[in-house]
């Protein structure tokens, strides 16, 4: 897997499998030293050396901290209508660094609170997606045969549906979706990539010595899958999930911008921009500032994801 755009099973990187203490093949002797240090610690060390990824991590932590602390940091309440006459649609000023919106609400405060909604939504949706995708892909890869064919045909079909059109259809039919419905809808349309990745990894692992050994020792299928195989694919799944979060932030922003995502008055990065969508020229601060927040967060998330991928793949 080389970029979030790519199909994960295109170049299934023959990764190192086997945690310390597990049987490793002869070809893997060269990286025994790497294994002995503990894969996670080694990943962290390699990650630390990547300056871009570390910068991304710092930015993400900062954004998350500011969002969590929004009630303490924000100068106003996000939904407070300050003064419909004097403070309607004011450009940025000292009192309102990001300006005010057509309902005289403080845009800076809305951006701060919107970060909570946008980020929490994306994280929860991607966790849903990772769980569903891992289970689905693991079953397909482990069982194999016709079941695998059918399951993978379905994900192929789902992958090729233009997701934004599907989401538009769903959100339009259900009217105003609640937050939990949005998490579900976004999560349930984001797992196809993960499932293909997991399937490819599990397939490649099925005939490894230590899997055969575990089965020969009488371990049940469920145990082999859950205890022996899944822990070994944790790092690619985590990388895919991290990169997916950035994608879902963008998707949510897009849906909210079109008015079918997070519903007002609750602020999200996307729907603040929607408040100014019909007057981009006059109310530029309503597009530019939440947009910058989205861009910063997503760049940081993608940088961390890229860094994790490079760190998790010791061959590069």
């Amino acid at each position: 897997m080389t970029s979030p755009l790519t199909s994960p099973n295109l170049t299934p990187a023959p990764r190192v499998s086997g945690a310390p203490g597990r049987i490793t093949g002869a070809g893997e002797l060269a990286i025994v030293g790497w294994l002995e240090a503990g894969p996670w610690r080694a990943i962290w060390r390699r990650f630390q050396r990547n300056r871009g990824a570390m910068a991304g991590l710092v930015v993400i932590i900062a954004i998350a901290a500011v969002s969590i602390a929004a009630p303490l940091v924000a100068p106003y309440s996000p939904n407070a209508i300050l003064d419909m006459v004097a403070l309607k649609s004011q450009p940025p000023s000292l009192a309102h660094p990001f300006g005010t919106d057509p309902a005289s609400r403080d845009v800076l405060s809305r951006v701060l609170f919107g970060g909570r909604v946008s980020l929490a939504l994306a994280v929860l949706a991607m966790l849903t997606a990772a769980t569903v995708g891992t289970m689905y892909g693991a079953v397909a890869g482990y069982v194999g045969g016709t079941a695998d064919d059918v399951l993978m045909r379905v994900t192929d079909a789902c992958l090729s549906i233009p997701r934004i059109l599907l989401l538009l259809t769903v959100c339009a039919l259900w009217g105003r979706p609640s937050l939990s419905a949005l998490v579900l809808v976004l999560g349930l349309t984001s797992w196809f990539g993960v499932s293909r990745l997991v399937r490819a990894e599990i397939m490649a692992m099925r005939t490894r010595e230590w899997v055969v050994a575990a089965r020969a020792l009488g371990a049940t299928d469920a145990r082999v899958l859950l205890r022996h195989m899944l822990p070994n694919i944790a790092s690619p799944v985590i990388v895919a999930t991290a990169l997916g979060i950035g994608n879902v932030v963008l998707l949510e922003a897009g849906l909210s911008y079109l008015g079918v995502g997070v519903q007002p008055p609750l602020a999200s990065w996307g729907n603040i921009m929607q408040d100014g969508a019909d007057q981009v020229r006059g109310l530029w601060w309503l597009s530019v500032f939440p947009g910058l927040a989205i861009v910063t967060a997503v760049i940081a998330i993608n940088a961390v994801g890229d860094g994790l991928r490079e760190a998790a793949d010791p061959r590069q």
């Binding site: 950035g246 963008l250 922003a253 897009g254 911008y257 996307g270 921009m273 981009v280 020229r281 530029w284 597009s287 530019v288 947009g291 989205i294 861009v295 997503v298 760049i299 998330i301 993608n302």
Partner: peptide, 13 residues
């Protein structure tokens, strides 16, 4: 990492 519609709006502006 840019939202499509945001880049479009900035280009328009």
């Amino acid at each position: 990492s840019l939202p499509d519609f945001w880049l479009a709006q900035v280009a328009l502006l």
